[in-house]
Design a protein around this nucleic acid. Structure first.
Length: 974
RNA sequence: GCCCAGAUGGUGGAAUUGGUAGACACGAGGGACUUAAAAUCCCUUGGCCUAACAGCCGUACGGGUUCGAGUCCCGUUCCGGGCACCA
């Protein structure tokens, strides 16, 4: 009786064995080289794992196991990003504490993960919601609060250094990152009270409280970070978002703009994700120029404002200036005559949502009544207020050059303002000429058209635009008309949320001054509340807590009723956003149980940073920016040992699901088979509408399990939900109900989720692992399709049968392998080694299949072939590999076997490339060692079987070996 | 609009980076074993023409470089991703 491949028994056995023997436990081992593999940890949702989740975990597990086989000390941890909105919303609905549902979900995740056979070291598990963990999130926040950023050294420094400087010299000319430029003397600083000083310091702290425009989402009752808003609506739920000025905690991420940009050059990430981050950081070099203004065309100078431009060369084409409606300058420049019009315009702008502003680009604006004086030409140009200028970027004020900027052009056309072309040959009668190429003219337009500064006038005529930009910058700088400035689009991150289920801030308010709770008192644990909703007075949910006050003397949390504003003060009601807990978790995995530090010096020094990070590309502008920022800050503190946290990044694609739709006739309970419907494209809605005998039919999701192919199981769906129980189904001519199918993101709400447990049950984890990799390149998104899984399962059965004879006896002996055996094996090792290094696992699987069928038909029995074969399969299918390894008499785990090396000598004959005949020559390309002597190369080439075909009966005139690889054999022409 | 990545059979996708395009798998068709089914095994499967051999055409489209192009260069079309009034 042949020995069956009983995957259920095998996998159960090894899961137990791995736990008992602590196979995947890792500790620092200075004798071995480290390798740190990490997956983006999951948010434990109530739906459990679907087949898409393990894709990245399997890919990284294969790499981790491969590295271990190569002798590295591999850290491959896993944990949970446990704070999140769904648990909180569930809590609001049911009153169930989010911790409870979160822990239930975590248990379910763990159970599912364990079935797949990962090599995670579960002793290092972290949960962002556990006080042991978020103690260090709070700690890092406090460190940021106590730091500022020096632009010159590009480093974070302790805030005391800055206060000391203020005490002695005031602001001086120290270039430090700040919210707005400030200027004060030491005397002024020293004269201020504690409150005023605290307010001023907020301008410099890396974690600070700022009055900023925030994305306020009324439906969610909270503010959102920029990356949480997509197309003007909230990423979660798709609710409208409006702009609102609020006092919020912020992180000065923008201070690190340049380092975040520079760091991209040193890391091994995909070009597209680096590009996305570069766009998000949005560096642009330009100039800030001061513009004096008057309140009437003949009036005297009233004051000045500063504009930012990247096109300093176009100063001679300025015909008006524009201020952002939110700019504080608007008030100053508005003349009494224009006051009413401006106020009305501001009101209109405020009433518009972010979304409206994004979609609708109609030209709007209003004249302020004032005139700006162009410092180069001396011209007076009207100052407008218009929403196309953004308050948050540059200085919130621009000089408008309609000839060479399409937005200014549209504005000028609308308000009938002059357009002056500055580039030779540029036709600006229909549209602006925005390109930065060409020769400058009209700059100045005539003799004396340029203001004289210290005997020098600016003249750009005849220069290329690039030269003109540089020349203008020089002129502006030399005559102190402004300064050269680099601007970044990257905004400071808004760091507080009006939610319950998040890290509480270790902050209390002492007479209105935000004060840090002493470090030794951390963590400040999330208080109990009886309701998870905001309070009736509109405070965040933590306002419901009754024990949420800080006793400064006794250093403990006490009842709110004791607040006296002398020794007992209220604690911050905000919580931290989702990215807080995920920003430094990779450091905590290095030393997860340390009570004294986020990570010990020793562990940080050993593990350094993550060598391979695997996760979705949707985090490009969120988590992957924040954690780089966070790490750079910790690097400045000396806690993190590397400037960049993730050396190599692989973005796995999504696995999509097949959604199925049934169609209900509007206002009826009748469902019509999809093939009976008439289709109509609706331009306005950009989608197809469906009709049955003139009545519109609306799509309704049907669960994937109700559908076989595209045929609906009508009986099954009747039992699914009440909605379908008594429905009438109109079938097609074949008596079938056909559903419409679409590929969509796999999600519970789309009823297209495929669960990995069923696959493990029916085929085993090894088949699941293999199949997920076989589905296609790891970085690509692809729909889940079980059709191909049989092929992988069949392969594993064939592989298994390679080791057992008809009687169920192991057929491995000490015989010498044949050349053929060695060729099959070494071809495989070479291919798989290269594939794993490049993460193209999908192409390894065909190689396994070919090698298996080759060795099978060769009736290979030799241990010298079979043992390495098992090791090579082990990263992909660890269970079957362990079982066979043990069967071959090994007492140690296959995880510690050495990764086999291939030897080209077994492969030589197979690597002759296609010989080509031309001009009486035959050319070969051989893959041979570079140091092989010329005669050897020639001999190998001539003896290659492929060569015979071409050289048979030909007279060889001469052979030419091109160094190493190519050989030209010249034959006598026929 | 700007930036990035793509386009190969009925399908997912290979092609050692310029050397026999379509590996491997799925699907489809045919066959063997079997009372039958399942399982397993074998054959065929890009298109056209052909009884067959042979031949011709084929990697989105149009050009180019080369003895030789899926691969390199120029242009076009289409799909996907990112950014988007960022001055």
């Amino acid at each position: 009786m042949a020995k069956e491949y009983n995957f259920r028994e095998i996998e159960k056995k090894w899961h137990q064995r791995w736990v008992e023997q602590q196979t995947y436990r890792v500790t620092e081992d200075p004798k071995r080289k480290k390798f740190y593999v990490l997956n983006m940890f999951p948010y434990p949702s109530g739906a459990g794992l679907h087949v898409g989740h393990p894709l990245g975990y399997i890919a990284s597990d294969i790499y981790a196991r491969y590295k271990r086989l190569q002798g590295f000390n591999v850290l491959n941890p896993m944990g949970y990003d446990a704070y999140g909105l769904p648990a909180e919303q569930y809590a609001i609905k049911t009153g169930q504490h989010p911790e409870k549902t979160t822990f239930q979900n975590i248990d379910r995740y763990r159970e599912q993960l364990d079935k797949i056979g990962f090599s995670f070291d579960w002793d290092r598990e972290v949960r962002t919601c556990s006080p042991d963990y978020y103690k260090w999130t709070q700690w890092a926040f406090q460190k940021m609060f106590k730091s500022f950023f020096c632009n010159k050294t590009q480093k974070a420094m302790p805030i005391e250094v800055l206060t000391e400087h203020f005490e002695k010299e005031g602001t001086g000319d120290w270039d430090v990152a700040c919210t707005e430029e400030m200027n004060f003397t030491a005397e002024e600083w020293n004269s201020w009270d504690e409150k005023k000083q605290s307010d001023v310091l907020m301008n410099y702290r890396l974690a600070f409280m700022g009055e900023t425009m925030v994305n306020w989402c009324p439906a969610l009752g909270t503010v959102l970070a920029n990356d949480e808003v997509v197309n003007g609506v909230s990423e979660r739920g798709g609710y409208p978002v409006e702009q609102k000025k609020m006092r919020q905690w912020c992180l000065r991420v923008s201070a690190y703009s340049q380092r975040l940009l520079d760091g991209l050059e040193t890391i091994d990430w995909s070009e597209s994700i680096k590009e996305t981050q570069k766009n998000w950081i949005g560096r642009s070099e330009g100039a800030e120029i001061r513009i004096p203004y008057t309140l009437s065309i003949e009036g005297e100078q009233e004051g000045e404002f500063t504009i930012f431009t990247t096109r300093a060369d176009t100063m001679f084409g300025v015909t008006f200036f524009v201020l952002a409606p939110e700019s504080e300058l608007v008030d100053k420049v508005t003349t009494p005559e224009q006051r009413a019009a401006v106020d009305e315009y501001i009101k209109y702008v405020k009433g518009r949502t972010e979304r409206e502003r994004m979609i609708d680009h109609t030209v709007t604006g209003v004249f302020s009544g004032a005139y700006g004086i162009n410092p180069i030409t001396g011209d007076k140009c009207p100052i407008y207020v218009a929403e196309y200028v953004l308050a948050g970027y540059g200085t919130g004020a621009i000089m408008a050059v309609p000839a060479h900027d399409s937005r200014d052009y549209a504005f000028a056309k609308h308000f009938d303002l002059p357009i002056i072309p500055l580039v030779e040959g540029a036709d600006v009668s229909e549209e602006s000429y925005d390109a930065k190429e060409g020769i400058v003219m009209n700059s100045p337009r005539a003799e004396g058209g340029s203001v004289n500064y210290d005997g020098e006038c600016l003249n750009l005529n005849g220069k290329t635009i690039k030269e003109a930009i540089a020349e203008t910058k020089r002129f502006v700088k030399a005559h102190k008309l402004g300064r050269v400035k680099v601007n970044y689009r990257l905004r400071d991150a808004i760091f507080s949320r009006q939610r319950y289920w998040g890290e509480p801030f270790p902050v209390y308010y002492k007479n209105g001054i935000p004060t840090m709770i002493p470090e030794e008192c951390l963590p400040i644990e999330l208080p109990q509340v009886d309701k998870f909703l905001p309070t009736e007075t509109g405070e965040p949910p933590l306002g419901n807590a009754t024990k949420w006050a800080w006793d400064e003397q006794n250093k403990k949390i006490v009842e709110n009723s004791l607040i006296d504003e002398k020794t007992i003060f209220p604690i911050e009601l905000y919580t931290m956003p989702g990215f807080a807990g995920s920003s430094a978790y990779y450091l905590r995995y290095m030393d997860p149980h340390n009570q004294e530090a986020l990570v010990s010096e020793k562990a940080a020094a050993y593990w350094q940073n993550v060598d391979l990070y695997v996760g979705g590309s949707e985090h490009a502008t969120g988590h992957l920016i924040y954690s780089r920022f966070w790490n750079k800050f910790l690097f400045d503190l000396g806690v993190s040992k590397k400037e960049e946290p993730f050396q190599k990044l692989i973005n796995q694609g999504m696995i999509q699901g097949w959604s199925s739709f049934v169609y209900r006739l509007r206002n009826t309970n009748k469902f019509v088979s999809f093939d009976l419907l008439d289709e109509q494209y609706d331009d306005a809605k950009k989608k197809n509408l469906y009709f049955y005998q003139g009545t519109e039919a609306d799509p309704v999701y049907a669960d994937i399990s109700m559908v076989n192919g595209n045929v609906l199981n009508v009986e099954k769906i009747r039992q699914w939900t009440v909605e379908f129980r008594d429905a009438e189904f109109i079938l097609n001519a074949n008596g079938q109900y056909i559903v419409n199918q679409a590929i969509e993101k796999m999600s519970k709400s789309k009823y297209n989720v495929v669960n990995p447990d069923d696959i493990c049950e029916n085929y085993g984890a090894d088949t699941l692992r293999l199949y997920e990799m076989f589905l296609g390149p790891i970085e690509q998104s692809k729909p889940w399709d079980v059709a191909g899984i049989d092929g992988c399962f069949r392969f594993l059965k064939k592989f298994w049968m390679l080791f057992w004879d008809k009687d169920g006896q192991l057929q491995a002996d000490d015989s010498e392998p044949t050349a053929e055996n060695m060729k099959s094996l070494h071809k495989l090792i070479k291919k798989v080694s290269a594939d794993i290094e490049e993460f193209s696992y999908n192409t390894s699987i065909p190689a396994f299949m070919v090698a298996t069928s080759e060795l099978s038909s060769q009736k290979c029995r030799s241990r010298k072939v079979l043992e390495p074969l098992v090791v090579v399969l082990a990263p992909f299918c660890p269970h079957i590999a362990e079982e066979l390894w043990e069967a071959m008499g090994h007492e140690t785990t296959v995880c510690d076997a050495p990764w086999p090396k291939w030897d080209d000598k077994f492969l030589v004959e197979s690597t002759v490339k296609m010989p080509v005949q031309f001009n009486g020559k035959v050319r070969f390309t051989l893959d041979l060692p570079a140091d092989m002597p010329k005669e050897e190369v020639e001999k190998t080439a001539l003896s290659a079987p492929e060569a015979g075909k071409y050289l048979e009966g030909q007279q060889i005139v001469k052979t030419v070996v091109v160094p190493g690889r190519i050989i030209n054999i010249v034959i006598k022409p026929a």
